[in-house]
Design a protein around this nucleic acid. Structure first.
Lengths: 199, 199, 199, 199
DNA sequence: AATGAATGAGCTTTCATTCAT
DNA sequence: GATGAATGAAAGCTCATTCAT
């Protein structure tokens, strides 16, 4: 249906406007009217596409996380070498930041503060990431590449922690963007430490 | 002055109540009246001790961070070995979590979403942590103990990122607390990976 | 015109849907979209047939009241005996309830709370009922059948009050419908009291 | 407590303002700000005394009905003669109208349209009226004063119906207030018909 | 005639902050 | 210092109505 495409397009448009606004002012300081203004649509139209302000944030999370999981799956299938696999995972997440920093900022900074976020459904989505990364580590341990002393699960947390740390640096220290703080450089550094740490 | 001590004691009491409430419901979902109730104090009394709701959160941050910096200083002076030093730093932060999980939760989850947090003064306080940890790494590199390829600054970020990662896990997955997720175990694991990563 | 008939048919269809919805949820809790859904008609089509939500309620009232007045006229012409006439009037109104309880419910419960209802035109329609019933009473008094001490107008009010009382009972106490509360029984009782009261 | 008295006084003040406003514009057309303006208090103060707009209406109903029931009880104890008793009941309700027409108007016109009104608790309050009046009729029948053919329950409905009918006349036809429509006269007429009807 | 996306005024409710006592 | 009533600016959400297709 062309009509349905239009609908989904507009939905996307409003969602992206929400991301922009949330990234700029934070979820709690953003008003629905700000989103509407950013999207250049009428106030009430927001509510044609999303049931509430909370729900658009959940939607943003689910959308992004679904993409992230697809990326992981792709990496898992395509790359054999455990070291390269883990490198690719961290790089993938951080590369997403260069593509859409606002999106990651919102997910790291705002989503976890929303009560509605702590639903069974979201926890499942969320844990799927850890399961997959854990599996990769476990396989690497079984292949004798990774140190068997470290808990795969905790490494999976640390992987995400690295991503968070970087994003938070950008949020805390916007000045970092110039000079040595370029994302790609920081990514390389973080990956190196992480991988060395578990060899 | 005994009178001043009393003042400061009550201020502390209200601040601690605020920490408890913010940890339970999040800063934006907490009302000043909730804090007053938690402190078992009259509604308006809050404003005798803090100029605003925002300010109590800033106050919490500055208080805690000042303590953290004191701890770092102490470690820096007392421990010579660069590896042990870094281990001690991470352990110190995570040990604080066991002592006062609410406090760290608030600092990790709520403080960074507050507009007022992004003041020069707070940035200075905040950066002092990274400076000091960077210095420790740099010294370790000069002593030939740490890998010279990694940026000290980025390691300092990762150090904090590890702490964040752990705290966030507790926030996301309360179930983690039982079994292998014990803080001390997770701490050991994280420290091991981090230190191995930079040797 | 066949075309006009079609128009009027659809208008009727939507009006009836409105009655159903208003009876179920009350005028103020009903949305135009609910009416459209009930009528299985597109959202905006409502406005092809009625200028506004208010107007459909007015329309419902005028329609029903016109029918009621026709009924009264018919009774007035057909029945001679004043006692039987009054009995027939009350019975007629209450019988309407059994035919279309939703309609009467809407008229009793919703119409009087609508600002637009208090127009000259509607007041005229409304008062015509009281005039006619008053006349019947007056004639009965002149014929020496009814007590001359009672004001015909007030009896006319009481007549309608009896109808309202019954309908309200059905609204308040839906449980009444079973057992002795059957409409016909209640009607008989009410008529008996009223007529005895004015003999 | 003097303090508590002050509180209750203010609560009453706001409740009465709500009655005035609801009577003037109808519940659904009244805004909380109208009530605040009428009470000459700040907007938000309303919510210190009532949890919501709905609740003030419920409160109005419960308050008034409690008083009504007290009145019935008093009459029941004080008056022996069944005829006089019933007369007193109807008169009592209608006299209340002269004391506070706005209150009765709100109760008759607005309360039954509120979803929240249909709670078990309110139904109980509501039915207590019918029980008591029914009992009075039954006793009158046993004493051989009232016609045994009429159902006491239905008479109790009609009693209230008479009150409603009168109030509705005032609402529909404000012009009625002058001339023969004086409340006391209408009351006498209604009582006469009702009582005659069941002798 | 039929459709349903778009519009935006309007309303309830919340809650940080002030202030009289 | 202590109290909690009073204030009023927001902000989320609803929904009658319009309008382009």
């Amino acid at each position: 249906m062309i009509a349905e495409d239009q609908l989904e397009k507009k939905r996307n448009h409003i969602r992206q406007a929400a991301v922009t606004v949330f990234a700029r002012m934070g979820y709690h300081n953003s008003r629905v009217s700000d989103i509407a203004k950013e999207a250049e649509v009428a106030y009430g139209l927001f509510y044609h596409y999303f049931p509430s302000k909370d729900d658009v944030l959940i939607d943003i999370f689910q959308n992004a996380w679904t993409n992230l999981l697809k990326g992981l799956e792709h990496i898992d299938k395509k790359i054999e070498n455990p070291v390269e696999k883990i490198k690719a995972v961290v790089k993938f997440s951080l590369d997403e930041y260069e593509k859409n920093p606002d999106l990651l900022k919102v997910i790291v900074m705002d989503v976890p503060r929303l009560d509605k976020f702590y639903s069974e459904e979201n926890q499942r989505i969320f844990n799927r990431y850890f399961h997959r990364v854990s599996q990769m580590i476990t396989k690497g341990q079984e292949a004798g590449v990774f140190n068997k002393d470290v808990s795969p699960q905790i490494i999976s947390y640390l992987t995400l922690g690295a991503v968070d740390a970087l994003i938070r640096q950008y949020v805390y220290n916007p000045s970092i963007k110039k000079g040595q703080g370029k994302v790609s450089k920081m990514t390389d550094q973080m990956v190196k430490v992480l991988v060395n740490g578990i060899l």
